[in-house]
């Protein structure tokens, strides 16, 4: 039980990443694939945050001059996640706009039916 308690964030993070990857690999609907990518992104963000976590730590913010700098979590992964979230949003927006166009052209989002370029 203590194994689960100690590693619950890692398990959750990689659970999300692997679920996302599985969706990308086996699903045929483009929207589902995009959702899979998004789940994977979320998992990665959780993983990065978990890397920098310190047990019983607080946020690294000195909101008043009295706050002491003991037991603060690592600020670097948080900064990285901020960047990673923005990049995720950017890719998501682009993917959805492509999905709109794809639907206009092909009338379907089923990736099995969109195979004109295979030789």
């Amino acid at each position: 039980m203590s194994f689960l308690q100690n590693n619950i964030y890692y398990i959750g993070a990689f659970g999300l990443i692997l679920i996302g990857l599985l969706i990308v690999l086996v699903k045929h609907n483009l929207i589902k694939v995009i959702i899979g990518l998004s789940i994977m992104d979320t998992g990665i963000n959780l993983f990065l945050i978990a890397i920098g976590y310190l047990r019983n730590g607080t946020a690294p913010i000195f909101s008043s001059p009295e706050v002491e700098s003991v037991l603060m979590v690592d600020p670097v992964p948080q900064a990285l996640v901020l960047t990673a979230i923005v990049i995720g949003v950017a890719v998501l927006a682009l993917a959805l706009s492509l999905a709109i166009r794809l639907y206009k052209h092909f009338g379907t989002l089923d990736l099995r039916k969109i195979k004109e370029l295979k030789w």
Binding site: N6, N7, Y9, Y10, A50, I51, G52, Y53, L54, R55, P60, I61, F62, S63, S69, M72, D74, P75, V76
Partner: peptide, 25 residues
């Protein structure tokens, strides 16, 4: 999990306020 602390992260917490003047590290 939960015990990693990096040199870089600790440096930021210790001298972030003096280096940049921001209290949100």
């Amino acid at each position: 999990f939960g015990s990693t602390s990096s040199d870089v992260g600790e440096y930021y917490i210790d001298s972030g306020r003096a280096d940049t003047g921001a209290t949100n590290i």
